[in-house]
Design a binder for these strands. Structure first.
Lengths: 296, 296
DNA sequence: ATATTTGATATGTTATCCATATCATGGATC
DNA sequence: GATCCATGATATGGATAACATATCAAATAT
């Protein structure tokens, strides 16, 4: 199983024509036929069906094609990553985060410290939903991600650490009579219109808040679902309704929005750092070291 | 970037000793040094630091090690996956069957045994009429099918085997006076209302039963045509008429339906296994091996 | 029936890979 | 500090593998 043979195989599988594939590979046709035959001998399975004038992939060939592409892509990625390190850029790191994270104390601090400690690392920031982050982390098209707890079947393939736990606060409009109180029990919100996190995108918070309300004895009247926390603040300012948000949302100063602690204790939301187990790059290891040391 | 070179690199990186790594790779030391140098030239970065007596990984080498492992592992996985498909241990198989087949002893047993022997094969079951199966088998949008004999011009393009021969029984309602007899000659049914198989969908059974009746000296009074055997049982139970059904229909226990053997001997219906000649996938070959070995 | 296109085969050349032999250098030992 | 040992690099020749040119056999198209 040679990378060159895999490359040849992909060319033939894509062109479905030995001659064209050979031209694309800048070799002549006979050695290509020969290499494919060698590859087929090696795996012990026919990869193409040669029925006279035209060829087609066998089941085995169809199985191999995407895998061969993956192997080649990863080899290529390894090469460029190594070269980047060689040029002193010491690697690249793609970091995912949800919209609320930049307002928390943890993400800015980690970024700042990492940038100072490893100025050579090319740090790419990507705002992505929790779900997208989990999918890209498992597919290894993202190195590390910040998000809040959720349910997702791929989560168990990832390594996660809680890096911050912050209380949930009630955000409501200053004109609301309840805004004059010092703290509020959830039960006081029975009649309030609720802004909630989207069930499909922010499953964890959606379910958590719903469960809290039910425990307090009422089902919230949901007037709006949103994807990201900061959006909520805008809606609260616009008088659309009340919402439960992480304490760090207080960072966002919008006239007319008041934050109140809940009377209930222990109502909080975690911030997680997640990455794929095994095969951590040097840059990722360094990032994790900094992020986790600041986590307590 | 050759897979061999990556393998060599991993060995040296793990042993941190060219001699030991060479021994592990069953080659001598000089070519190993040479291959590592070639690899370093290829990526343009030093992977090891040779400081006199001992060597260590450079940052670039540390970056490469986990990635090289990943590439090799995935190449290996691709190989075994392809081989599994080649051996028919994985892949997909689409199986057609008519409505009466699940009640026969042969189809459930074959499915059970095949699933146990080749759990990796994705087995798709499709309830299809005999005609549809024949058309899809010749068009190769179906891999294999179970049905009863019929006339169809495309049949000669298919390979067929009889996997079970079962007697035809008379199904009639318990209230029918004839139901008290132990066995019945066909001639006793001259005046009975007949439920028959649709001429267009189940040509074989339709013609067979019509011929039997004519041979017994009467033309049956057909009150209803149906597409599938199990449907008949329901109609018999409803008192619509009498019918000839395969013995395995006795599996369907519906109150009010009585099954009686015919006085005539040798009145039976076959169950066929059919597939398209040539180009059998490995999974299909394995399926046929199991199905035909149980056919006797 | 003939021409054309396709992938497979034959053969010689070149490049790659490996083994044996040898060299250069950094530590360890006396 | 001279010697010895271990380690990786270099030199050289032979085996293997990959390639190009020339050619073939079979399937289509004209």
């Amino acid at each position: 199983m040679d990378l060159r043979r895999l490359r040849y195989f992909i060319a033939v599988a894509e062109e479905l024509h030995f001659g064209r594939a050979a031209r694309r590979l800048h070799i002549s046709q006979p050695p290509l036929s020969q290499q494919i035959q060698t590859l087929e001998q090696e795996v012990g399975v026919a990869l193409f069906e040669r029925t006279g004038h035209r060829i087609s992939l066998t089941d085995a060939g169809r199985e191999l094609l995407p895998r061969a592409r993956l192997v080649l892509a990863q080899a290529e990625a390894a090469k460029t990553a190594v070269q980047r390190v060689g040029r002193g850029e010491s690697g690249a790191l793609e970091l995912g985060f949800t919209g609320s994270l930049p307002f928390t104390p943890v993400m800015p601090r980690v970024l700042h410290d990492f940038r100072r400690a490893y100025p050579g690392v090319q740090l790419q920031l990507r705002e992505l939903s929790t779900r997208e982050q989990i999918e890209r982390l498992t597919a290894e098209t993202l190195d590390v991600g910040f998000f809040r707890p959720t349910r997702h079947e791929l989560l168990e393939q990832l390594e996660t650490r809680v890096v911050l736990r912050e209380p949930l606060l009630l955000a409501l409009h200053a004109d609301n009579p309840l805004a004059r109180r010092k703290r509020l029990p959830l039960a006081a919100l029975t009649q309030e219109p609720f802004i909630l996190y989207s069930r499909s995108v922010s499953t964890g918070l959606h379910d958590q808040i719903l469960a809290l309300c039910l425990k307090a004895g009422f089902a919230p009247r949901i007037v709006q679902e949103v994807h990201e926390m900061p959006t909520i603040i805008g809606l609260v300012a616009a008088g659309v309704g009340v919402a439960l948000v992480a304490a760090s949302m207080r960072q966002i100063h919008v006239p007319g929005v008041v934050f109140l602690p809940l009377a209930e204790t222990g109502v909080a939301t975690d911030i997680l750092l997640a990455w794929k187990r095994g095969g951590e790059s040097a840059a990722l290891r360094n990032f994790l070291a900094i992020a986790l040391s600041e986590a307590k």
